[in-house]
């Protein structure tokens, strides 16, 4: 909790992002937003596939890899998301659909890698 208090209201959680091309950047993420929204707002537009369902866990195109430590802080993968992740050959034990991850203070410093195109 101490870390969360330090961050305070003014400071939004900051995520470390690696894009598909391997570029790295930091993204400020609004609490309560989805990770997908935070990435798009932060300029990582490649997370938005042309064929996106709009963030409703129905297309599987917003696949990301999360660092192991942060992954353990996320609520578990639900059945629908699990099934969609199975479409990806590139799935790892730390795969998530970014539209299903809510940003919280605890995710400050999370490392997110955008997965290859399906």
């Amino acid at each position: 909790m101490a870390e969360a208090e330090l961050t305070g209201f003014a400071n939004m959680p900051i995520l470390e992002v690696t894009t598909r091309s391997g570029d790295r950047c930091s993204v400020e993420a609004a609490e309560g937003a989805t990770l997908k929204q935070a990435l798009m707002d932060g300029g990582v537009s490649e997370i938005l596939a042309l064929t996106s369902c709009g963030g409703y866990c129905s297309c599987g195109t917003c696949h990301v890899f999360v660092d192991e430590m942060s992954f353990s802080r996320l609520p578990p993968v639900k059945a629908d998301e699990d099934a969609l992740l199975d479409f990806h050959d590139s799935r790892t034990p730390f795969s998530r659909l970014s539209c299903q991850v809510k940003i919280t203070k605890e995710l400050h410093g999370m490392h997110v890698t955008i997965a290859p195109v399906l």
């Binding site: 064929t51 996106s52 369902c53 709009g54 409703y56 866990c57 129905s58 297309c59």
Partner: peptide, 8 residues
């Protein structure tokens, strides 16, 4: 054109 949401 393809709608949006679960029924995209």
């Amino acid at each position: 054109a393809f709608s949006v949401g679960p029924h995209t």
